[in-house]
């Protein structure tokens, strides 16, 4: 039996989500047996031609060149999975979407004429059809393994789409907003990180992006009651998933 061909692609990103795959130290060698790793520049110089059964895509689309490249990847991929905040929402670099990009190149580079860039940083799904998305900045190791395993078994992955609040309740973590008055994005953020911030007494900062039907208006009102300025509330939404529609809209209203 031929093994499914797995490809991993990088666009504008920090490499952290691909690295999460290499950080599966206990599963990596077994994975390399279960699939034929056919394209994974972070890990191998062996490049096999497509088509590919599964493509994992990290990063956002920020240049004309990458726009063409993602279309090529789509054309060669049976299943295309966007992994991480950059691929699913444009990432931290989508903060440019709310500013003047010409001004940015002047700030960072001495010769802006050398730089080619699109005005906005876009999620993969803004340009091509995406079959599945995995949230997180970075993605969770266990969710990544679950997603790959389920895809190989042709079953639906078990990726809960509840809010961080549900994760805190299940873990019996005291609510940091209620008990300590710490602003927390948990009510509007999708679960999946493992309840990392609230359990160390830190408010969730939304790195898994908006949960479905997020009630951002209620949360923004609560932030105001806790004494946050409009700028502070806006910055809560304009972070690692700034361009995710629910957060982008909430940021505009703040």
């Amino acid at each position: 039996m031929t093994r499914p061909k797995l490809a991993v692609w990088k666009f504008a990103s920090c490499d952290g989500c691909q690295l999460t795959l290499l950080d599966c130290e206990d599963e990596l060698l077994a994975l390399a047996e279960a699939v034929e790793i056919s394209q994974f520049l972070e890990a191998t110089s062996e490049i096999k031609d497509g088509p590919y059964d599964i493509s994992l895509v990290e990063g956002s689309i920020t240049t004309d060149h990458d726009l063409h490249r993602i279309r090529e990847v789509r054309a060669q991929s049976e299943v295309l999975i966007a992994i991480g905040a950059c691929a699913t929402a444009g990432g931290i670099q989508a903060l440019r979407n709310f500013a003047d990009v010409d001004g940015y190149t002047n700030t960072v580079y001495a010769h802006p004429d050398y730089i080619e860039t699109l005005e906005h940083s876009h999620a993969i799904a803004d340009h091509v059809q995406v079959d599945m998305e995995l949230r997180g900045c970075p993605v969770s190791k266990s969710q990544l393994i679950e997603l790959i395993t389920a895809t190989l078994a042709a079953r639906k992955p078990h990726i809960p789409n509840v809010s961080q609040c549900v994760e805190c309740k299940r873990a019996e973590t005291a609510c940091v907003m209620v008990s300590q008055g710490i602003p927390c994005m948990g009510p509007v953020t999708q679960a999946g990180c493992g309840n990392l911030c609230p359990k160390i007494g830190r408010g969730c900062y939304g790195c898994f992006g908006p949960v479905e039907h997020a009630n951002t208006a209620a949360l923004s009102a609560e932030f105001a009651r806790l004494g946050l300025s409009e700028t502070q509330t806006r910055d809560k939404y304009r972070y690692f998933n700034a361009a995710a529609p629910a957060f982008a809209n909430a940021g505009d209203r703040a």
């Binding site: 920090c14 931290i92 910055d235």
Partner: peptide, 27 residues
């Protein structure tokens, strides 16, 4: 592709700098 960290950090709170800049490199 450039990601313009220095530019979009302007106006952000000082306490956000470690979390924002950590996204320069996942390694």
């Amino acid at each position: 592709p450039p990601r313009f960290f220095e530019a979009f950090m302007r106006g952000r709170d000082a306490h956000e700098a470690p979390d924002i800049t950590s996204r320069i490199c996942g390694i």
